[in-house]
């Protein structure tokens, strides 16, 4: 995606966010609303000014390099998917099982590690987090299956 266009879309999102927050703030009582309302109005005005500025700049861009500075989309999405998948696994199967499966599959598919190295790495990590949990009382996310 074109970076300049992505910046316009993101700024528009920020503008909508501030505007929605300002409208939501109006529903609060007087003492609860002053801070978020002022912040949101300031953010809304600034983001609108900046949005207009970058739209004008985008239209006026003469350099084709600038206009066509591309952003990676698919690659980041793939890794974001890995993270979301890991969290989903934790939610369903619990920390230990999810971590074992996630690490093993990731190390084989993405890191291209050998099976033995992957198994050993996963085992070390599981021992470490189990030890941490026991030694310094670290809590793990709860899961549907209760592990």
């Amino acid at each position: 995606m074109n970076k300049s266009l992505a910046n316009i879309i993101f700024t528009a999102f920020i503008f909508i966010l501030f505007t929605a927050a300002a409208l939501e703030s109006l529903t609060f009582s007087r003492l609860a609303q002053f801070f978020p309302l002022y912040i949101s109005i300031a953010g809304s005005v600034l983001s609108l000014i900046y949005l207009i500025k970058i739209i004008i700049e985008h239209v006026k861009q003469s350099s084709p390099e600038e206009r066509h500075e591309q952003l990676q989309i698919l690659k980041p999405l793939r890794y974001i998917g890995w993270i979301l998948g890991y969290l989903l696994f934790i939610y369903v199967f619990g920390m230990l099982i999810a971590t074992a499966v996630f690490l093993f599959v990731f190390l084989i598919l993405e890191s291209k590690m050998k099976v033995l190295s992957s198994v050993l790495s996963v085992a070390v990590m599981l021992v470490l987090i189990t030890y941490l949990s026991a030694a310094i009382n670290i809590a793990w996310p709860s899961s549907l299956l209760g592990f």
Binding site: L17, F18, F28, L31, P36, I39, L46
Partner: peptide, 19 residues
């Protein structure tokens, strides 16, 4: 400003009200 707005989530310090 976005940071300030995110920081305003939760209970208001002046009144017992959630935002």
């Amino acid at each position: 400003l976005l940071g300030l707005l995110i920081g305003a989530v939760g209970s208001a310090p002046a009144v017992p009200e959630y935002r």
